[in-house]
Design a protein around this nucleic acid. Structure first.
Length: 266
DNA sequence: ATGGTTGCCAAGCAA
């Protein structure tokens, strides 16, 4: 039975709950992974998900900032809500999804720190924190025995030249600096993870999942970045059937600055 | 080079 997975930085799940429900009705993923839910667990809009056909919820939230969640049509177990860099930030949750007769699929849903504006660890603690987070995440993901696993979410790094609107102009912009892109590629390769988006869409092709709110004409200027990712272990990656970046979601009413990414496996 | 916008929550920070 195929498994359809979506990931979306929603930038407030309560503000955009109607968009989320419309997305679920239209695309019917088995599992939706959200980042930047921006609400405490007690305020998570559980009923809306249940009514949309997603009664299984795994939440790791906090008030006002960060927050990740997984909504599923299928039963799942929470594996972990890991904290990184000795901080309390809600940036990770992992679940094991029970997909009928097939073996479960483990999904690690991440919201990597954005890293602030200045790409210098000495002048900007947030940038230092982002690099430390990636390293810690890499140590944890490098277990070679992992099978049937996915890493999804807002990794806040655009690794390839074609993952940004201008490689040259973004080399010193946080999210595309060499120290970030090399770190991300290093931990991906160390864990033998496959970049499913780039396995499905040629690396020569520009591909973005985020367009800044600050650009008044985002579509015409198209100054986007690919900050959201779906990685898979090789056993799952070789079953990938389809991949969609839902660019039109950026034109919805009161949009998130990120759009959903959807992949189907098996 | 600068400022451009949005969300949370009710000022300023984070993105």
């Amino acid at each position: 039975m195929p498994l359809k997975i979506a990931t979306w930085n929603i930038n407030s799940v309560r503000l955009r709950i109607n968009s989320v429900c419309e997305f679920l009705q239209a695309h019917k993923p088995d599992v939706l992974c959200l980042q930047e839910t921006k609400c405490a667990d007690a305020h998570f809009p559980r009923n809306a998900f249940a009514e949309a056909g997603y009664p299984h919820l795994a939440i790791h939230g906090q008030k006002a900032y960060h927050g990740v969640a997984v909504a599923s049509r299928l039963p799942m177990d929470v594996i972990d809500r890991k904290l990184f860099c000795d901080r309390e930030d809600a940036r990770h949750i992992s679940v094991s999804v029970n997909n009928g007769s097939a073996a479960p699929v483990d999904i690690h849903n991440f919201y990597v720190p954005a890293g602030g504006d200045i790409p210098d660890s000495e002048k900007n603690w947030k940038f230092a924190h982002k690099l430390a987070f990636i390293d810690e995440m890499g140590d944890w993901l490098a277990k070679p025995e992992r099978k049937r696993s996915l890493i999804v979410g807002d990794l806040n790094i655009a690794p390839l030249e074609t993952d940004v609107w201008s490689h040259k102009q973004l080399l010193k912009v946080v999210s595309h600096t060499p120290v970030e892109t090399e770190s991300l590629e290093r931990i991906r390769k160390a864990g033998r993870w496959v970049d499913v988006m780039r396995a499905m869409i040629p690396p020569e092709e520009k591909l973005f999942t985020w367009w800044s709110y600050r650009s008044p004409n985002w579509e015409a200027s198209d100054r986007g970045r690919r900050l959201d990712h779906i990685w898979a272990t090789p056993d799952l990656a070789e079953t990938a059937k389809a991949l969609t970046v839902l660019k039109q979601a950026r034109n919805w009413e009161k949009p998130s600055d990120h759009v959903p990414v959807i992949a189907t496996f098996g």
